[in-house]
Design a protein around this nucleic acid. Structure first.
Lengths: 119, 119
DNA sequence: TTTAGTAACTTTCAATATGCAAGTCGGTTG
DNA sequence: CAACCGACTTGCATATTGAAAGTTACTAAA
C-alpha cells in the first residue's frame, strides 16, 4: 500500500512522466471518475449514474486504484448502514489541469461536446 | 473515414469532452505515440525503439486510429522501397497542453520521473 | 413479519483487447 | 544469391472489460 502510495515500484514502463501517469489513469474510465469528483459527485451510486454508465465492477476497481495511488480518499459519512463518501486528495485536485486541457481540446475538436465541469 | 475525421459518430459515450477525448486517446499507449512525435520521432521503427517497447500490432493499430481522427498524417518520404514519415496535424499539436499538464503532474507526483519532451 | 427498497459492492462468464513471437513484402547491399 | 531493413501483419495465449445477477447490511412500508 505504501508501495503504491509513493509509487516506488520499479515496474514502471519507463521513467517518462507521461508513461507514469498513463500507468495510473491511462484507460477509458479512470479520468471520468475524477471528472465526476470535480463535478461534485461523491458516492458510488452517483458515479454509476453518470451518462457513460460505467460498469459496476470497473467502478469498484478504479476507485480501489485511485485510493492506492493517493488520488482520492474514502470516509464513511454514516453508520448503520455504513455509507461512504469519496473525495479528491491534493494530488487528485492537481489533475484538474490535465482535465481542463482535455476539456479544451474536446470542446474545440469534438463536435457536440459540452463541458460538465466547473472551472 | 470522413465519419471519424469529423467525429460525427453518435456512438460517443456521452457529450462530455472528457469522455470524447478518452474515446480517442484513452488507453495506455496512444499518448505515448503522440509524445514521441512531439519528441521529434517520425517513423514506425523510431516509435518501436521508445523505452516502453510498444508491441508492433498495437503500434500499427494506434497509428491507424490517430490517422482516422486526424491527429496525425502520414506521407512517404521515399519510394523504392516506400518508407513513411508520420507527423502531427494542427489538431494533434494541440494535444501539447494535455501532455504538458501530464508531464507536470508526473514530475511532481511520480518519483524518478524525468521528462523527454521539449517544451 | 414478510416484502420492498437502497447503497455499495462482488461474482460469473462471455466478449474484446493486449502482448509476444514469428512471418510477410518490397526493396537494397555485400 | 544471402543477408538486412523498414513497415507492417498474423497467430495464438492471456488479460481486461462489460453485462447481468447476486450479496450484505440495514431502513421503511404493509
Amino acid at each position: 500500500m505504501a508501495a503504491k502510495q509513493n509509487m516506488s515500484d520499479n515496474f514502471r514502463r519507463s521513467p517518462c512522466p507521461v508513461a507514469g501517469i498513463l500507468d495510473i489513469v491511462g484507460d477509458k474510465w479512470t479520468l471520468l471518475v475524477v471528472r465526476d469528483l470535480f463535478a461534485g459527485k461523491q458516492t458510488y451510486s452517483e458515479f454509476q449514474k453518470s451518462p457513460e454508465r460505467i460498469p459496476s465492477n470497473i467502478l469498484a476497481d478504479r476507485l480501489k486504484r485511485l485510493l492506492e495511488y493517493g488520488i482520492i480518499e474514502k470516509e464513511p459519512y454514516q453508520t448503520r448502514p455504513v455509507r461512504y463518501r469519496y473525495a479528491l486528495t491534493g494530488r487528485g485536485r492537481e489533475l484538474g489541469k490535465v482535465l481542463k486541457a482535455m476539456v479544451a481540446w474536446g470542446e474545440k475538436h469534438i463536435p457536440g461536446s459540452r463541458s460538465v465541469i466547473k472551472p
